[in-house]
């Protein structure tokens, strides 16, 4: 079986005002159909750059990105268009990821318009279906994004990502800007959608506890490289790399009986 998404020896660097940043240094990973791979790392580890490369927002220096065996590196934006429906994205910041001047219905319909899916009537129905699926009330269709809270905007973003029936969704810190109770709603929604639609997720996050029960496999990224990867439970219980151990230990566990700096005890439990 070939993986749905396969990344081999990817390198990516870019120029900033402080000089060249080699953000991704030879990353290889695979996402299989129907699974969730959690990509965990701290800020500046290169995880967002990696996501941008997969989405064709950033040109890698070298390496391969294979979608169902088809090479994506080197394709022009135009050449990538036919593959776009397969890979969609849910963005981190629900306040900047929706065009403030578009109505909700237009935002969710845009992907269908771009790819000419169905008749206008069918698109309209599809938008309402999608809104219902992500838990948005149909009478909100003609409102603007600024009328919604962060959690609801994230639902709009998810509906937009689902419109083209993708097989893989890149979730770039989709809940890190949300409150705990709303975060739970969105994580559960993503989980239910995966179960019902057979989606694959590349779930990028800095929060290990969040993906603990949610990811099938996990890849730990540190300074542009994958330092450890494997089945999620195994990595939590028996971390091999020094970075993974430090990270797990540093997690504050919501239990007064687990003292500061001993997160591994809680995970091993």
């Amino acid at each position: 079986m070939t993986a749905l998404l396969s990344i081999r020896e990817l390198h990516c660097s870019f120029d900033t005002t402080r000089g060249k940043v080699h953000a991704v240094r030879g990353v290889s990973l695979e996402v299989n159909a129907g699974e969730t791979l959690a990509l965990v790392g701290e800020s500046g580890c290169g995880k967002t750059t990696l996501a941008r490369c997969i989405l064709g927002l950033q040109r890698p220096d070298s390496g391969h990105i294979l979608l169902d065996g088809q090479e994506m590196v080197g394709l022009s934006r135009r050449a990538m268009r036919p593959f776009r429906p397969d890979v969609q994205c849910v963005f981190q910041d629900p306040f900047s990821s929706l065009n403030p001047r578009k109505r909700i219905s237009a935002l969710i319909r845009e992907p269908l318009d771009v790819h000419g899916v169905g008749t206008p009537e069918e698109r309209k129905r599809r938008v309402l279906d999608l809104m219902e699926r992500v838990g948005l009330r149909p009478d909100w269709a003609e409102r603007f994004p600024h009328e919604f809270s962060g959690g609801q905007r994230q639902r709009i973003g998810i509906a937009r990502a689902l419109a083209l029936n993708p097989r893989l969704i890149i979730c770039d810190e989709p809940v890190s800007a949300l409150d705990v109770s709303v975060q739970a709603q969105i994580v559960n929604l993503l989980y239910t959608l995966q179960r019902d639609l057979g989606l694959s997720y590349l779930f990028i996050t800095h929060d290990l506890t969040l993906v603990e029960n949610f990811a099938d496999r996990v890849a730990m990224m540190y300074q542009g490289q994958i330092v450890e990867s494997g089945p999620a439970q195994e990595v939590w219980r028996n971390p091999q790399h020094e970075f993974t151990r430090t990270l797990i230990d540093a997690i504050p566990i919501p239990d007064p009986d687990v003292p500061m700096g001993s997160g591994r005890k809680a995970f091993a439990g």
Partner: peptide, 27 residues
Amino acid sequence: RGLLAATPRPGRRQEGELPLSEIPGMV
């Protein structure tokens, strides 16, 4: 109680359950 249940923590979830327990609605 809802807040504590919604907070992700290790080794909590049973197979087949939703990942986190949520508080419905909004503030």
